[in-house]
């Protein structure tokens, strides 16, 4: 039985990857279970300078999901490549995916260059879609021209496989995907969170201090499957599917929709063991569904 998949030359022992922002820097979980069951880990998003992020409350619950407005809290790209990645590399033999963000093309280039030069990093994932930050990623990820501009700029300084993580808050995801492919992306990750809002009707105030936040969790899974499938038909580069994945069945479904690897996000917050459980369950489900090789089902829809 084959669970191994290949992302632009990087081999993953299985397609399961905790999504950026839902698994810290991996190290936080190294004491909880053996990380080596995972195909890869997408690390918490990094920016040029350290960021606190938004004020609390920055978590809100929704039916079958949640909103977050963490706002890219991170210690900065230098700490990521100098401390976090080397420490994780000692504990983890799977694919390490650095997720980088920026508030300008120059910042994206700066962070991508540092991540690309870091020995322990296998894939660079450029977040052009984080909806949390004022004047930040949103603008890049919601226009094909801006997404292509960032992609082309980071491509020049990136010698590693380059994935662009797309925002779902757009009219035509296929158009953005094609623009990123045309500008040199090796692959695409989608979807990031969907912009949402909740209001406390007793206090008559938004639940989140930041007013709005990114919607994720089981509830968004059908949106993610739809967008992955649209993108898979629009481009010929590999896709990492992400959004509402919470089980091995969801992984299979996402792969059928067109994903080569599958990221698990918000579900880690309700069940920190979920990625391990999915990795264990996947071969059993493959057996039941008579799938000998996961590569056979990628994009069959």
């Amino acid at each position: 039985m084959v669970t191994e998949v290949n992302l632009c030359g990087v081999s993953l022992k299985n397609p399961v990857v905790p999504a950026s922002g839902t698994f810290g820097f991996g190290l936080e979980m190294a004491e909880v279970y053996d990380l080596n069951v995972l195909g890869g880990i997408s690390l918490k998003g990094s920016t040029r300078e350290a960021r606190f992020g938004n004020e609390c409350p920055r978590i809100a619950e929704t039916p079958s999901g949640m909103l977050n407005s963490v706002g890219l809290q991170n210690p900065g790209i230098d700490v990521l490549v100098g401390e976090k990645v080397p420490a994780l590399r000692e504990r983890f033999d799977g694919a390490i995916i650095a997720n980088v963000s920026g508030f300008s093309v120059e910042e994206y280039v700066h962070c991508t260059e540092k991540a690309s030069a870091c020995e322990g990093i296998d894939i660079v994932e450029v977040n052009v879609s984080c909806p949390n930050v004022h004047g930040g990623g949103l603008a890049f990820g919601t226009s094909a021209a801006a997404a292509a501009e960032v992609t082309a700029a980071v491509r020049k300084v990136c010698s590693k496989p380059l994935f662009v993580k797309l925002s779902p808050n757009v009219t035509d995801i296929a158009e953005i995907a094609r623009a990123c492919e045309g500008a040199g992306a090796d692959g695409l990750t989608l979807i990031n969170t969907i912009l949402g809002m909740r209001i406390d009707i007793k206090s008559r105030k938004p639940v989140l201090a930041n007013r709005m936040g990114g919607f994720s969790g089981k509830a968004v899974f059908p949106v993610a499957v739809r967008m992955v499938n649209q993108v898979r038909h629009a481009v010929s580069i590999p896709v990492m599917g992400c959004g509402g994945v919470s089980s091995a069945a969801d992984v299979i479904e996402m792969m059928m929709a067109g994903a080569t690897a599958v990221q698990v996000g918000a579900e880690n917050l309700r069940n920190p063991y979920v990625c391990k459980e999915i990795c264990e369950e996947l071969p059993l489900l493959m057996n039941e569904l008579k799938i000998n090789d996961l590569n056979e089902i990628i994009g069959i829809i």
Binding site: G21, T22, F23, G24, E28, M29, V32, K44, F52, G53, C56, R58, I59, M66, N68, V70, Q73, N268, L269, R270, P272
Partner: peptide
């Protein structure tokens, strides 16, 4: 969010 240090939701 998570209660165990991985989401940075309660910083």
């Amino acid at each position: 969010g998570c209660g165990c240090g991985i989401c940075y939701g309660c910083t």
